[in-house]
């Protein structure tokens, strides 16, 4: 949206306002209640994984995810995709992010592993358990990363 902040209803009375001094209570100029001004999050870069992408930067993703919003909020957006197709077409339960929001696409089958990419592969429970175990200490995690990237 390119705006500096949005007014939000909620948060007042919670500890969020204690840890986020940048969240400011403002008067509703058109009503009686107090609102919270939340500054915009402006990511420098979005990295997302898509089902399909084409050479125009159009990408097909799951309609349940917030990827379209992230693409519109981020300064630059890179999408990896299971498949590169000549033209991304609409599909049931999926949504197209127009290429105008995407700066680069990369063909990367398996890019969501060890999590799931519905229709392509399931979550890898065993690998997630191994990851959780490895993430307990910096040493075991470093070792995990080395093995994972090998």
């Amino acid at each position: 949206m390119g705006l500096p902040f949005l007014p939000v209803r909620g948060l007042i009375g919670t500890d969020y306002l204690r840890i986020r001094p940048d969240f400011q209570i403002i008067k509703n100029p058109y009503g009686e209640d107090d609102l919270v001004a939340i500054p915009a999050i402006k990511p420098d870069l979005l990295l997302m994984h898509a089902y399909k992408a084409d050479r125009f930067g159009n990408v097909l993703t799951d309609k349940r995810e917030s990827d379209p919003l992230l693409a519109r909020a981020s300064d630059r957006a890179i999408a990896t995709a299971e498949e590169i197709v000549p033209h991304v077409e609409p599909e049931a339960d999926k949504i197209i992010i127009p290429g105008i929001y995407i700066d680069a696409v990369i063909h990367l089958p398996g890019g969501a592993k060890p999590t799931a990419c519905p229709g392509y592969y399931e979550i890898q429970d065993e690998e997630i358990r191994r990851y959780l175990q490895a993430a307990q200490t910096p040493e075991t995690f470093r070792q995990y990363l080395e093995e994972f990237l090998a």
């Binding site: 209803r9 007042i12 009375g13 919670t14 500890d15 969020y16 009686e32 209640d33 107090d34």
Partner: peptide
């Protein structure tokens, strides 16, 4: 307090 059951007035 992530969610409060007793928010202040004027909210």
């Amino acid at each position: 307090i992530t969610a409060t059951n007793n928010p202040p007035p004027n909210v």
